[in-house]
Design a protein around this nucleic acid. Structure first.
Lengths: 223, 223
DNA sequence: CCGCGTCTTGAACAGGTGTTCAATATTATT
DNA sequence: AATAATATTGAACACCTGTTCAAGACGCGG
């Protein structure tokens, strides 16, 4: 077993301290993210990853224990950053006393950190697909890593829209989440159908349009 | 090769006319839909399907030729119904001269036929997952079966929102599509997080909330 | 009855799957 | 420099993958 097979091998930006041998582990992780984003979890074989990372297959099992643990490691590496960004976004939103303006800030706190993923790596596609897989319930990744911050957003939404029912809040939240995931997971269809007029790869532009539509949608009863 | 391996073995509600032997074929198709919805295309093995349908594996290859063709057969069976419902919804919408009211009808034509899938079978989950898989580009299912009706909806939207740019129309369309797919693919997370206050399985309720939010979102510049 | 086209079956195929193991190489510690 | 700890390697494991094939079962018009 490796020296640091356990959770906290990659908690922050601590780099350079770990032995040079970590290099192979990191390479595997990066390649795995890439390949799984392309082929999905079930559709990816460890040998494909091993070949592209230029390591023997056995080394993957050595560092991560199992295919599923390798998968979870990707989430352990990426999720904390996103969650942190969201939390800060929510804190900033809470400082705004005008509820109407605060609403927009909350929506931004939900959308912006995630749409940004499209420009930095392939994790967005993995995330968007994992949330639609029934098997995700067993894996427990979302329950464990995202449910807490999801509840924070739901609370923040409720504060902005005090006269909305619980059901309305949840339908609204999932409408936003779904739209966002869809843009994150897009494989070029949007650009193709629009001849490039709309393109999630231009994520600032996409974020602005998304936020504008969603915020307006959320105000439909507040006004 | 079977008598009717080709496209048009199941075009309408014609039943009873084909030989009794069709029974096994239909059973395979139904079970495949179920299993693939649960485990995904790559995650499903033909032997799992065969076992649950109580037929030998070889029979699947005999009737459908290959795993991929079996998959496509599911779409060939289900998609025409949905597309047809959408087209009628669009025709009805076109009869409404008030653009503001027509907009709502167009959104309904997009949302309602699909959210209804949740109550009838497992196809919704398959659809929602297929659209997020990069491999779908090669398979060409969406390009072939959905792009045409997608363009019809885009045109209809543009007619309702004449002052919107092409980009805005496309961002709006995909926002709606994404939200819808998310509800279709939901695996219980929505109900769990909301303690049952929101639940895509109550699809009339869900449709109404979704349409309300999205229509309001689309009116944000029209007003 | 036969013969014919359509289904069905079990066995086998060649190749791919994740994981394990003992042996070796590398690095860190004393 | 010697020793212990950690990484890396290639081979092998048992099992599962989609597909093929020849042999048989079924229903039906002659």
């Amino acid at each position: 077993m490796p020296k640091t097979p356990s959770p906290l091998s990659q908690d922050a930006d601590a780099s350079g301290t770990e032995p040079k041998s970590e290099k192979a582990r990191d390479r595997i992780l990066a390649v795995a993210e890439e390949v799984i984003a392309e082929q999905g979890f079930a559709g990816t074989s460890l040998r494909t990853i091993a070949a592209r990372a230029d390591v023997p297959v056995a080394l993957i099992s050595y560092h991560f224990g199992s295919k599923l643990e390798l998968y979870r490691s990707i989430f352990r590496l990426r999720v904390p950053t996103i969650v942190g960004q969201r939390q800060i976004g929510l804190e900033i939103a809470r400082m705004e006393s005008d509820l109407d303006r605060r609403l927009e800030l909350v929506v931004r706190a939900l959308i912006v950190p995630m749409l940004g993923l499209r420009n930095s790596g392939h994790f967005g596609a993995i995330l968007a697909r994992e949330i639609t897989e029934p098997a995700n319930v067993e894996r427990g990744i979302f329950t464990e890593m995202f449910d807490p911050v999801a509840r924070m957003i739901l609370t923040a939404l409720h504060e902005c829209l005090p006269d909305w029912s619980k059901a309305e809040i949840h339908y609204a939240y999932n409408t936003m989440l779904g739209a966002m995931m869809f843009f994150m997971a897009d494989t070029g269809r949007i650009a193709r159908l629009s001849d490039g007029a709309a393109d999630p790869d231009r994520n600032e532009e996409a974020s602005q349009h998304l936020v504008a539509i969603l915020v307006a949608g959320l105000r439909h009863r507040a006004r």
